[in-house]
Amino acid sequence: MNPISLYLRLVRIAIKARMQYRADFVTGILGVIVMNVVNISLIGILVSRFADLNGWTIWEVVFLYSLWILGHSLFSLFMWHIRTLEDYLVQGTFDQFLLRPASAFVLFIGREVQYLGIADFAIGVSGMVLAYSNLRLTWGPVEWGFLVLAILAGTLIEMTLTLMISSIAFWTGRSRRANSLVMQVNVMVQYYPVDIFGAFFRVLVTSVIPVAFMNYYPALMLLGKVEHIGAWWPLAYASPVVALMMVGLAAGVWQLALRQYSSAGG
């Protein structure tokens, strides 16, 4: 079996497994929708009070939020369980991924799906549609194509970050705290345009934890606000490149982690 068809098979099984818990499904979806509507309304109130968030209007903030959550939705649908890697290690269930004549990564990544991502996706699409019409945007094929790329890049950036942070558990046994630390930074980027923060935070979310490429930078391009960052304008187009770099980095970390696992022993 090649890795892609193996992955698709695994996902199909994971979905079947999830469908066993239907009541859970409905309440979970409702919960996520309510939570996000409350979130975005709070930001709306905030923005309307101050009238102006460093030149960002309320619908532009909604756009930022929606772009982030679209990338995040694919992550949370298919890759949320990367965050629980330490449980696989502690409980010893990781062993079985190494017992098969197939890639341990594919076996791990295809192990679970998390339907709450569907709610994230719905929120993202509605937010995007509302923002698009309220901002009176008129995109050509280049912008639409870039939107798709930016969403996928967002997914990959969140996935690779989470994978690398969770891999700490291969060395220390635990990674939960580090993960929630990064998640907190990530959520800040989701809610607010990065340029309202100080230099330290901007550098942080551009380089070390490059979550600004999930929404802020591509949004500058998509909203025609590239001049916002002056000479740094190439960053507005850089999301796909950053995502690929992160994939390379994460692949290296993963290889190291597997070697650590087999030599130190679960």
Partner: peptide, 16 residues
Amino acid sequence: RRVKRREGLFGNLRTL
């Protein structure tokens, strides 16, 4: 090599 764990906010980073 069993790791001696550390507690605290940056515990697992320090351990790393």
